[in-house]
Structure formats: structure tokens, C-alpha cells
Design a binder for these strands. Structure first.
Lengths: 219, 219
DNA sequence: CTCGATAATATTATCGATAATATGATCGAT
DNA sequence: ATCGATCATATTATCGATAATATTATCGAG
């Protein structure tokens, strides 16, 4: 769980090799425990493992980001549509509570907490869909994107002030239970944050964020 | 890898508890190796693990099947559309080769091989989409469905003779590069095999397949 | 000086054993 | 007799050490 935090905070930049025994000594645990953690993070998409070679912090190429953003939009629209049909007033209240938590985390410049709160907001919508498998897919697709954004923010490369307001149309659309509007707002919400990195210059912007260029053959 | 086969062949019915040390002794390997295998199968969706409790062969409730079939249709349509735009003649040839392998496996009543070949056919379409993440999601969603079908077949509960012909419209639609037709055929292909288990009587049919009823509170 | 084979090193994969935890049974109190 | 607490047992989680494998460095031949 600490590893997850380190990745989100950008303390372990994408591409960092994760040596099992090294991490084990570092945290005073066994290799088996580290191995276990790495396997779980691989499942979450934050770590990439190759058999007999080793593990590294997942590095998202512009192509990867594009793929994930597209899939997230597709799946989240579906989830939000289903959720709208099932959400009661208490669910909307919970959603607004989570948005408030997000606002507070942003207000105090806590990037890791902000990313988690952002994730928790969206996760709640997913859960309201009542579709368990859909939730799992969205976790898989989205978590590394949030890590990506979290790193951007911790490097000061993304404006934070607008984040809360950006979420309000989502709640409004869900409240209205208008499928067309839900699709529009969630499509927009899923893609807007990443637009700077999806254009021609995406590679350059991402490189600035991480302080290095991806090697030509990587991914 | 043997465990995977055992699940597909129905030798380990859904719900079977998988004790780490027991399996380790059975196959003359270490607990760590079994643990590793279970973790990978959990990732593939064939095994369900609960912390400090244990692992069982994943049991798909009718709801689970419904969720997965719906998501598979959604994702596979997207993959097939993208694939059609990129497939060359050699790709179509490969697809037909794989369909032939499937036909041979069915001809000799080898259920495990048939399920794998069926999977390999669809996997090739996914890969032609060029969208790596989409492939991963489809694996996750679909593999347990194929295991489900494989068990049905091994219990003689599904007709096999029509399987090959059912795949031909898919190839034709891809060849035609007609998005509308691709969507139609893949939607149909993804859902048709499961129709018997998606109706009111789904629970009963599934119970027949596995020889037992799901406990009321399961899932 | 370059290329290929071979040895040294580093890292993952596996092993056997121990510790931590949850489940089910036993006992006592009401 | 039933409910709650405690203990026994089974199972997973973790540990330290060894084996297998891949990468890198070294050496010798051309």
C-alpha cells in the first residue's frame, strides 16, 4: 500500500525498476511480501512485470493513455447511465460528500489524497451501476490514469482550481436522469483532463512531466 | 497451467475450494508456486480469492454471466470494428486457419482444446484491433465465460455441430469492412451461446450444468 | 579492434518452515 | 437448553535460504 502511494506521488517515476529484495530490505519485510504486493499492483496496472526479468513502475505511452481514455469514456458512460436509474437521494448526497472531500484535499495541496478522492468520487458512480464486472474493468483502466494525473499535478503541470467545478455537471446530469446528457458529460469528463497529452505534442508534454523522454523502443 | 485445464474440463467444478498446501502436495511443488498460480488465475478471473480465507473456482451466477456477456458484446464490437480497418489478407487467412483448428477440436470431442481454439479465434480479432488495453479487458471478461461454456459442453448440455458455422458470418463481416454488419454479427455472436442461461430459468439450467444449485447468498 | 564464447554477478522463482489469522468446537454461565 | 466466551484446528501469510535464470563483464580468437 505504501508502494501505491509512492507511485501516485511521483516519488517512484514511471519506468523505475522495482527490485524485490531491495524493496524487501528497505521496508524490513520478506521478499514474498514484496512479490505479493507487486503482483497486486500489476493487477491494478500500476506495475509492469516480465517473467524472470523484473518489475517496473508502469509507464504510459501517449498511445496507452489514448487507449485507456477511450475505453474509460466508453465504460463510464455505460456505468453512469445504469447508475442514474438506480441512484436515490442518499446516493447523490454521498456523491456530494465525496466531492467535498476532493475539494478539501485540493485546497491543501495534498496530491495523493486528491487523486484518491477523485477516484473515490467516480468509483461511487461505478458502484451505483450495480454492475460488478464493469466496476472491475473501470478500476483496471482508470487507476493508472489517475496516477498519471496525480504525477502531473505534483509536478505543477495541471491546474487544480477547476477540478471541483468540473465534477458538478456530472452530478447534475445524473440527477436529471437524462441518458443523452449523461453520455455527453461523462465523455467530456473522461477526456478533458488528458487533452494536452493526446495531441501531436503529447510525447513532449509527458516527457516534461516525468523529466525524461521515453526510450524509442519502449512500448 | 494444469489448474486452468482442470477448470475448463469441469474436473474442478465452480465453487470448489482450492487449498494451497493440498494442491502443493498433490503436484509436488511448493506452496509459493501454488500461491503464484492462484494469483494469476485470480487475475484471469477463473479463481476467486478472499484474504485470509482462501480461494475457490469462480462460480458465475446468472447475473455475472449477464454482466460479462453484455460487456463482452460492447467491447468486442469495438475491437472488431477497429480490427476490420487494419486486417490484411494474411490476417483473414490466419483467422480461417484458427477456425479450422476449432473445427478439428470439435470433431474429435476435445472440449478443452475446443474452448481454447474458440478463444484463440476471438483473441486474434482482438489483437488485430491494435488496442492492447482492449485485449486485456476482453481477456478478463471473456475467459471465464469460455470456461463456463466449456463445462456446459463437457456435460453434453450444448450442441457443438453449429459452432464452426456460427463463426463464419464474423469473418464475412470483417472482410466486408461494414461497421454496421460487424456490430450486428458480433453482438449476436457474443450473446447467442448464452441465451439459454440468461432467461428466467437461467439458474435452473446452470444448476443442471454443474450438478448443484448455487447457495442463496452466493454473490 | 571486433566478435563470439564463457564466466561472474544480479535477480527472480521456488522451497521448507514458522507466524498470524479465521473458522468451528467445547465448555460454562444464565 | 441457549447464548457467549474460550480454545483447538485448519488455512493463509510471511519469513529466510536455496535453486534457476537472465544480464553483464571478461577473455581469447580471428
Amino acid at each position: 500500500m505504501k508502494l501505491r502511494q509512492a507511485i501516485f506521488q511521483g516519488r517512484l517515476p514511471p519506468g523505475t525498476p522495482l527490485r524485490e529484495l531491495t524493496l524487501a530490505r528497505e521496508w524490513a519485510v520478506s521478499q514474498a511480501t514484496v512479490r505479493d504486493a507487486l503482483q497486486r499492483l500489476e493487477h491494478a496496472g500500476l506495475v509492469t512485470r516480465k517473467p524472470n526479468i523484473g518489475a517496473t513502475v508502469t509507464r504510459l505511452s501517449p498511445t496507452d493513455v489514448r487507449e485507456r481514455v477511450g475505453l474509460r469514456a466508453l465504460l463510464e458512460k455505460k456505468a453512469a447511465e445504469a447508475a442514474a436509474a438506480r441512484m436515490r437521494e442518499s446516493d447523490f448526497a454521498e456523491l456530494e460528500r465525496r466531492l467535498k472531500v476532493l475539494g478539501e484535499a485540493i485546497g491543501s495541496d495534498r496530491y495523493y489524497e486528491a487523486a484518491q478522492a477523485d477516484l473515490d468520487f467516480h468509483r461511487y458512480v461505478w458502484q451505483c451501476s450495480g454492475n460488478e464486472m464493469l466496476c472491475r474493468l473501470l478500476e483496471l483502466v482508470t487507476v493508472p490514469l489517475f496516477a498519471f494525473i496525480s504525477i502531473m499535478r505534483s509536478n505543477g503541470l495541471q491546474r487544480l482550481t477547476t477540478v471541483v467545478e468540473a465534477h458538478e455537471p456530472l452530478i447534475a446530469a445524473l440527477r436529471a436522469r437524462d441518458p443523452e446528457r449523461i453520455r455527453y458529460e461523462f465523455e467530456r469528463g473522461a477526456t478533458s483532463s488528458y487533452e494536452p497529452y493526446l495531441e501531436e505534442s503529447g510525447e513532449r508534454v509527458a516527457a516534461e512531466a516525468f523529466g525524461f523522454l521515453s526510450p524509442p523502443g519502449a512500448n
